[in-house]
Computed example of a mutant assay.
Amino acid sequence: MEICGICPRQCKVDRKVEKGFCGVYDTPKVAKAFLHKWEEPCISGTNGSGTVFFSGCNLKCVFCQNYNISQEYVGKEVSIEKLSNIYLKLQQMGAHNINLVNPTHYAVQIKKSLEISSNLKIPVIYNTNAYETIDGLKMVEGLVDVYLPDFKYIEDSTASKYSGAKNYFEAASESIKEMYRQVGGPVFDENGIITRGLIIRHLILPGFSGESMKVLDYIKNNLPDDIYISLMSQYTPCYRAENYPEINRGITRREYDKVLNHFFKLGFENGYIQERDSASCEYIPQFDLEGLDG
């Protein structure tokens, strides 16, 4: 953290005294910790996923649904010990897993918090935008059971325009290979809850079904066949999307079906699809510091 290079931004700032590109210092900042019922069925199950939302982000997505925490940095700073206690409290509440949302810029602190969580018996999910470094991922190897990357883009121009990350594909594609090396394909318990493995999410953007198909092509040609893919139709124009007319709408049924048909054409057999009514603001959590007291 004194010369921060945990993500591909390579800020090299001392985050003890200066904020990185991610917008936060080195003390973990959390906006919410609760039982999330709206993740993939193998993650939320019946009880919910013990989800911890971290503030800050190493991407600047103009359409971010969680912009309150990713770009406006709403949240509360907590100690490493407090973070560990949050995991244990969620476990006591019946969570199927600990779901670390947007963890990249806190990989060092998360590693420490998991190392002292000796009583944590449920799987740990690393829920990331995939804009990672190999070194950062190796730091949490053996502590993370499930990787849940959102593989956003394949074209540098798209990544640069909408997320301010021209080298996104280069970083994300290599990171996802490293995630698979660590945990392999998905493994489920007797109730269908994932206990280990990789699931790749992909959020389809309006007008970019062609790029989504290229993402699927890349996965098919470069990753093992036991990969699970979650094709998300939940895009809702938020934050600064109104400044980009081409993405200031939801995706159409035709756009989603085009990508889904390509999924099947490529021979994929494992994954999840979303109903289009998931593209609603009612599914965006209220970042009200729930679960951070006590």
Rank of each mutant, 00 (worst) to 15 (best):
residue 72 E to H: 08
residue 85 N to G: 05
residue 66 N to L: 11
residue 94 G to V: 06
residue 86 I to G: 02
residue 90 L to N: 03
residue 92 Q to N: 13
residue 49 S to Y: 14
residue 65 Q to C: 02
residue 75 G to Q: 00
residue 97 N to M: 09
residue 67 Y to D: 01
residue 76 K to Y: 04
residue 65 Q to H: 06
residue 69 I to H: 11
residue 48 G to E: 13
residue 81 E to Y: 04
residue 52 V to F: 15
residue 48 G to N: 10
residue 37 K to V: 09
residue 83 L to G: 01
residue 73 Y to S: 03
residue 89 K to E: 15
residue 43 I to Y: 12
residue 70 S to C: 12
residue 76 K to N: 01
residue 35 L to Q: 00
residue 45 G to F: 05
residue 32 K to G: 02
residue 48 G to L: 08
residue 32 K to Q: 10
residue 44 S to L: 08
residue 79 S to I: 05
residue 93 M to C: 09
residue 55 S to A: 15
residue 56 G to H: 04
residue 55 S to Y: 11
residue 40 E to L: 11
residue 78 V to R: 00
residue 61 C to N: 08
residue 94 G to M: 00
residue 96 H to Q: 12
residue 76 K to Q: 05
residue 75 G to Y: 00
residue 30 V to N: 05
residue 35 L to T: 00
residue 59 L to Q: 03
residue 65 Q to P: 04
residue 86 I to V: 01
residue 56 G to M: 03
residue 77 E to V: 01
residue 57 C to A: 04
residue 38 W to R: 09
residue 56 G to D: 03
residue 46 T to R: 10
residue 39 E to R: 11
residue 52 V to H: 15
residue 64 C to M: 07
residue 55 S to V: 01
residue 52 V to W: 14
residue 82 K to M: 06
residue 65 Q to G: 03
residue 33 A to E: 11
residue 57 C to D: 02
residue 50 G to W: 04
residue 48 G to D: 13
residue 91 Q to M: 05
residue 83 L to K: 00
residue 36 H to M: 12
residue 30 V to S: 05
residue 70 S to R: 10
residue 39 E to T: 05
residue 87 Y to G: 09
residue 51 T to E: 14
residue 98 I to G: 09
residue 70 S to A: 15
residue 91 Q to G: 00
residue 77 E to F: 02
residue 46 T to H: 10
residue 41 P to G: 07
residue 81 E to C: 02
residue 31 A to K: 04
residue 71 Q to H: 15
residue 92 Q to I: 08
residue 53 F to Q: 11
residue 34 F to I: 11
residue 87 Y to C: 10
residue 37 K to Q: 14
residue 97 N to F: 05
residue 41 P to N: 07
residue 60 K to A: 10
residue 80 I to Q: 00
residue 61 C to L: 12
residue 88 L to Q: 09
residue 99 N to F: 13
residue 52 V to A: 14
residue 90 L to A: 07
residue 82 K to E: 15
residue 68 N to G: 08
